[in-house]
Amino acid sequence: MIKIQSLSKNYGDFTAAEDISFEVQAGEIFGLLGPNGAGKSTTINCISGLLKPTVGEVFINNHSVMGEPIQAKTSLGLVPQDLAIYEDLNALENLNFWGQAYGLSGAELQQRITEVLQQVGLESRAKDLVSTYSGGMKRRLNFACAILHKPQALLLDEPTVGVDPQSREHLLNAVEALKTQGTAVLYTTHYMEEAERLCDRLAIVDHGKIIAQGTVDELRSQLGEKDLITLQGDFSLTDEAVIAEFELIEWQDNSIRFMAENAAAQLSDILARFEADQVKQTAVQQANLESLFIKLTGRELRD
């Protein structure tokens, strides 16, 4: 349904996206996971036709976004990272506007408006001006505007940023419902727990490149059974040899990260290798996408 082939986007010497390729099938949620500035939004903007790729092709429902933009965009829904709604109109007026932008009209449009308002839990506030909504309600309306026309492919660019837990739950449920209806969903986020919950497959992006791709289980397996241990303190005078038998991820003067099997059991032994009061803080993370990202990049997702 969504097919990206060798997509690159350059701004002069700066490469925002490099050789990105993946496919999203109908009824599948594909996650793009990466920190801010990794190239997720650039990729989304190229797919939606907002940006012209420097190299590569994007197909939506077998229509090239560059070659047959109207046909491709008809099958596409976009939930942009920033709100894209009129705050001085009410929800009904916004939905009417966006429905028409996607070619809906008449009774069909009115029926879809009723359905999506129910879906995102805004039916009781439909006639209120959007400017009176909470941030989470605005996000839900932003989402509703993108699914009015029942798109076969949906792009969600960090839809839960700054959203309260109730609205987040509404949105995640709605995305899961779309998946069951056969929509191909491309979901970008830097919240690894969202990616783990929603995504059938995902790609981890950093500095514009895909550095890992697969199902959540496949990606976890890259870590094996190892946990991620993070120690913080003063290690400027300490020799790296103290943890030589572990898989070192990062050694800095004020923090070190390494992988260890059954970390909880070994932790007291590990700490004993350092001088008293040298370690100020200790963290043990079980194998997950966050620790995989740290292993792959040496950085945290929220950096």
Partner: peptide, 14 residues
């Protein structure tokens, strides 16, 4: 600025 024009450019009506 409020995102309507960028989002509209991704819609078929243009």
């Amino acid at each position: 600025k409020n995102g309507v024009i960028p989002r509209l450019s991704a819609a078929p009506s243009g």
